[in-house]
Design a protein around this nucleic acid. Sequence first.
DNA 1: CACCCTCGAGTTCC
DNA 2: CTCGAGGGTG
Length: 686
Amino acid sequence: MSQTPPDPNFEALAQRAASLRAQIHEHNHRYFVLGSPTISDAEYDALFDELDAIEKTYPALITPDSPTQRVGSDLDERLPKITHPNPTLSLSKAYTEDDIRAWRTRIDKVLDTSARLGYVVEPKFDGLTVVLTYTDGILTLGATRGDGYTGDDVTANVRTIRTVPTRIPVHPDAPRPPSPLVVRGEVVMLKEDFKAFQQKMQTEGETRFINARNTASGALKQLDPRVTASRPLTLYAFEIVDAPDDSTPHSQWQSLSFLRQMGFLVSEDIQRFDDLEAVIAHIRAFEARRHSLPFEIDGLVIKIDDFATYNALGVVGKNPRGAVAYKFPPEVVTTRLTGVSISVGRTGVLIPNAELEPVFVSGATIKQATLNNFDDVARKDVRVGDRVMIKRAGEVIPFVIGPLPDARTGTEQPITPPTHCPFCQSPVLHEEGEVAYYCGNPECPERIARSIEYFVGKGQMDIEGLGEKGVRQLLEAGLIRDEADVFSLKPESLENLEGYAKLKIQNLMNSIEAAKKRPLDRVLVALGIPNVGTTVAKVLIKHFPSLELLMNATADQLQTIGGIGPSIAATVVDWFALPRSRSVITKLAAAGVQMVSTETQITRSEALAGMTFVLTGTLPTLTRDETGALIEANGGKVSGSVSKKTSYVVAGESPGSKRDKAEQLGVPILDEDGLKRLIADRGGES
DNA sequence: CACCCTCGAGTTCC
DNA sequence: CTCGAGGGTG
């Protein structure tokens, strides 16, 4: 060992280490004792790793009480303690592919061999590790991992978990179990179970259950096993800790089948590889589908398969050398809710938006997230100033999971629905039993801006070159006041506007001209009548093939149409009764916008008549719109959600949850070719 | 009246 | 993509 050279930063690092130790101690206390953490697991890990790194560089800075010197504890003083004869060690962590390769290189040094090694890759469950002891096949002890050496005795609680065999073998013809048999497993709450449980508790006014892991942990540590029994826990077995030598497998991969034979639930998402690069490729692929797993994971564990080799590798510090835990980049982080802004949609609904201290999650810096509605805010009890947990739902849309109430200082401000529209000051409306709060003023400038944005948007009038910014600009310049004014824009008046060059103006004019020929059902959608989207608009136009006719229809007449109930009928009639609506329609007609249905419904065949399709993912050659048009042209229907009634799901590259749902319900799945073949087989046209 | 299916509306970042 | 709510059905 060489002498550590003096470092000008030594003082600063010593201070930093002390501060990290204090922070980690506090968070340990909050997490393990109070059960209410104020930072996310990933942030905790980051603090820990930073301290660990400092101490590795300057071992002189290690103090006996440093959190790095012991394995984290989750002991609960109310429960009886047991001592583990075979302590559970923690695994060294890897955050990058190179970390994994480095792990392999360290192995080579120790073994002094480049022999081919087998690897088993398992999900790293985000739950609680428990140790189960069986004597003559009877479950005699169930204990939490605790700090690895000492755990809580939760035998009675563990027995209530359905996937824990209390007596093995489960099947009479299976081999007799060795005795004693000590098995390690992970107690988790499956995502689906957690969701259902959370919902159930919410209806009973309990909103504390924020994440599956903490809920599972709480459930397992109940003093009354009946409470545990009422919570949907699942145990996955993943390791044989101890058993008489001659009777058990000699590799991890074989132990997993052995555990299955004994009647334990073992995850199906475990694989074995002979090559480290294959392991890495697997990890990369796995990360993409981690969300379609039934349980939460925060990474993958890679183990050397062969026990003899694994044991020969020994232990360094508190980590076995034969395994490594690869951690996914964090997906749940905490940040501060600095404020709430209110937006008004074109329908008048007021939506609270969270303003966040910028934070990096799942590949992007988030500084804003929707809070959906005020019911949600009240249910979660989020307040301005709170530290909140954030994730990106489906990897994309930022989502506020909930506050960390224990991090409050007392200065946080509750969020209440406004009594007046922030844009036009008119009183806010709220129907009893409904979630939404409305600005009821159809002339509200913000609502009008939103309506026009929607009107020119894609899928409606589809005027290219005119987006949100452009609409606001035109409104401010006084060039438009409503939807119809878009059609009377003059090239000359645009010239003075910032950002409008000759070519851009020309393109915009062409686009506006083209919009006059949109089919009537699209015009109807564009008008933005509440509850009238593509489907409803099509139905309405079919029965009332001109705006003139539709405008004069009564609610009773509308209700006779299938799919139109009292609610839609009322909103349609009400909307046409508004002076603003009538004026817009008159102006549109005057501007030359198509106001009658040309009704040359280009149904080329009835090949798909009576069938409903749901689209997900990206197809190789057709766009989403083209696929939909193709299906409709052949008499089929396109729907947004998968159900038992769905005939086919058409899935392309990187499909979403709909594909999984289809598999669940047994709905057949087609690719693009499959769809084309189906149409051709039934005499349709592509 | 309680379900299930379907639709509509709004959603972030770059 | 997800939620809330409308419409229809048993």
